[in-house]
């Protein structure tokens, strides 16, 4: 696929939750064009939207609210991809900071259970068991992606498009209509991650 002929452009929601250098570098390597979303009007400029995010979900939500973009994001009908904390923001609520989130996908973000004998954070490469979803086109079955997080999105068969096991099973990726979320970092997940970013960029809804 030659991305350079595509008219698609990704808008990255620029709300100050974590560093986006790695994400823009990964898009650059794939020849994917992108720009920054700072205002509601900016959301109109792009065909696809990415909500990045690293750090504390409650704090990230607070920063997102400060941009005044929450309602406009909720109303989007174009493809949206939340990455890591950006994915968690799509859910109803996080145990991290007991925070109410955007609430596009009616599920919850929970803290890993130490009593399962697992280390927290969940850090490293883990196998992702994905369903037949365009986000995972041309990704090898059970491919590994890079995770680093202490909170996870509960498994719900209605929205789950990829499962991962760490202590318990949880969602590595979710979808509700045009809204997608991945818990892992595609920008740090080698070839599998690059393929996923390309797939998102080429999504039509």
């Amino acid at each position: 696929m030659d991305n350079t002929t595509s008219n698609n452009t990704i808008g990255i929601v620029n709300y100050g939750a974590g560093n986006i250098f790695s994400l823009t570098a990964a898009l650059d390597r794939q020849g994917i064009s992108y720009g920054m979303v700072n205002t509601e009007a900016d959301l109109e400029k792009y065909s696809h939207i990415i909500i990045p995010g690293v750090g504390h979900a409650g704090a990230a939500m607070q920063k997102l609210r400060q941009t005044g973009l929450v309602d406009a994001i909720k109303a989007l009908t174009k493809p949206v991809l939340g990455i890591c904390v950006g994915m968690q923001l799509l859910s109803d609520h996080s145990e991290e900071g007991n925070a109410d989130l955007i609430g596009i996908v009616p599920i919850k973000t929970k803290l890993f259970d130490k009593t399962l004998g697992i280390k927290i954070p969940h850090m490293g490469w883990n196998n992702v068991n994905f369903t037949n979803n365009p986000l995972f086109t041309n990704v090898k079955p059970l491919a590994q992606f890079y995770f680093v997080h202490s909170y996870f999105i509960e498994y719900n068969p209605i929205f789950d498009i990829a499962l991962v096991t760490y202590g318990n099973k949880f969602s590595a990726a979710i979808q509700k209509n045009n809204f997608f979320g991945v818990q892992f970092h595609p920008e740090k997940s080698g070839e599998a991650g690059e393929q996923l970013l390309k797939n998102f960029y080429n999504l039509t809804i």
């Binding site: 250098f21 790695s22 570098a25 990964a26 650059d28 390597r29 890079y146 680093v148 970092h185 920008e187 740090k188 997940s189 080698g190 070839e191 991650g193 690059e194």
Partner: peptide
Amino acid sequence: VKSVARQLNIP
């Protein structure tokens, strides 16, 4: 670090 981050697709 910037040069590495531009090129590297692992952490």
